[in-house]
């Protein structure tokens, strides 16, 4: 899979991560030349129309009115949104020239405390950037092969996320950990669009869906939920699995246990979040687990 990275900053780190990442699909990435944001958006991707385009910009690099906002000059929200619309026009045009287009949401331009309580005032940077991101998401939601990725998660994944020396030496606003997280998200998005996502999760029972050994402890004494850190953790794990199940991922159980005992726990334990109806199938017996998985699948 060819990936073209379009950015207003030096995006070589993320393109190198995308190329080196060994998870499927294998890919070869190329970053646009530094300072060529709008020129790159207006041209066809150099690797052809079957490639993926990843657009990652700083708001001040993509929207000239945002720099005025950062400089403290009087700036109208309408002008900022007009700038976003111009950017979106270019992005939408690019979407027509590639297979899949991914756009990173905009992050605050500066780390640190900012202007404190003024940031979320109607004219503040935080509230205005949120409106710009919302406009970006709304515009791109109308394009079937374009998706917005939440860049805040990449910042959360790296400590520190920013290093001003990186910017002044290499024109890269984020540290390598942020680029790595971005790369992982881009690859995951490509897998999703190309039908390579996981479709089935197989779980064990004892000390997996619940705390304790049902055959030894009895289902009444298993740790699920309640005022207990282990029980709460298992309840949260079940809740996460249920959320995936609601999104169409099948669940199954493979466990070395007595089937009737285990199913009684699933049916009867009052704190169980997953019930029998949530499992597409199960193999609960004393046979080899690997063989059970093969048989189940």
């Amino acid at each position: 899979m060819d990936i073209f990275v379009i950015s207003d900053f030096n995006a070589d780190l993320v393109s190198r991560h995308l190329s080196a990442d060994r998870t499927a699909p294998s890919s070869k990435a190329l970053a646009c030349p530094y300072g060529q944001l709008y020129q790159s958006l207006s041209a066809p991707p150099p690797m052809g129309s079957d490639s993926v385009v990843f657009v990652w910009t700083r708001p001040e690099g993509a929207i000239s009115e945002w720099q005025s906002q950062l400089d403290g000059r009087p700036t109208q929200m309408e002008d900022l949104l007009a700038g976003v619309d111009l950017f979106c026009d270019a992005v939408v045009a690019q979407a027509g020239k590639c297979r899949l287009l991914l756009v990173a949401s905009w992050l605050p331009s500066q780390a640190g405390r900012g202007l404190g309580m003024l940031d979320w005032s109607p004219d503040g940077n935080a509230s205005r950037l949120a409106q710009m991101n919302l406009r970006l998401a709304q515009r791109l939601s109308q394009v079937k092969n374009a998706f917005v990725l939440d860049a805040q998660k990449w910042i959360d994944a790296a400590q520190p996320a920013r290093d001003s020396k990186f910017w002044y030496l290499a024109k890269t606003p984020f540290t390598e950990g942020v680029h790595k997280a971005a790369s992982a998200d881009v690859k995951a998005a490509i897998r999703g669009v190309t039908g390579q996502t996981r479709k089935l999760i197989i779980v064990d029972l004892d000390d997996t869906l619940w705390g304790g050994i049902v055959g030894d402890d009895g289902w009444q004494n298993l740790k699920i939920g309640g005022h207990d850190p282990i029980g709460e953790a298992h309840a949260d794990f079940q809740r996460a699995l249920l959320s995936l199940n609601h999104r169409g991922i099948a669940l199954a159980v493979v466990s070395k246990n007595t089937e009737s005992t285990a199913l009684e726990s699933i049916d009867q334990h009052p704190e169980m979040i997953l019930r029998r109806k949530n499992f597409a199938g199960w193999r609960i017996n004393w046979n080899d687990k690997a063989g059970n998985i093969v048989e189940l699948v």
């Binding site: 030096n10 070589d12 780190l13 520190p160 290093d163 020396k165 990186f166 030496l169 290499a170 890269t172 540290t175 390598e176």
Partner: peptide
């Protein structure tokens, strides 16, 4: 290359 060297030295400094 220069980006690799900058990445290495800044990671070490941090």
């Amino acid at each position: 290359d220069s980006l690799g060297l900058i990445t290495l030295t800044l990671a070490v400094e941090r």
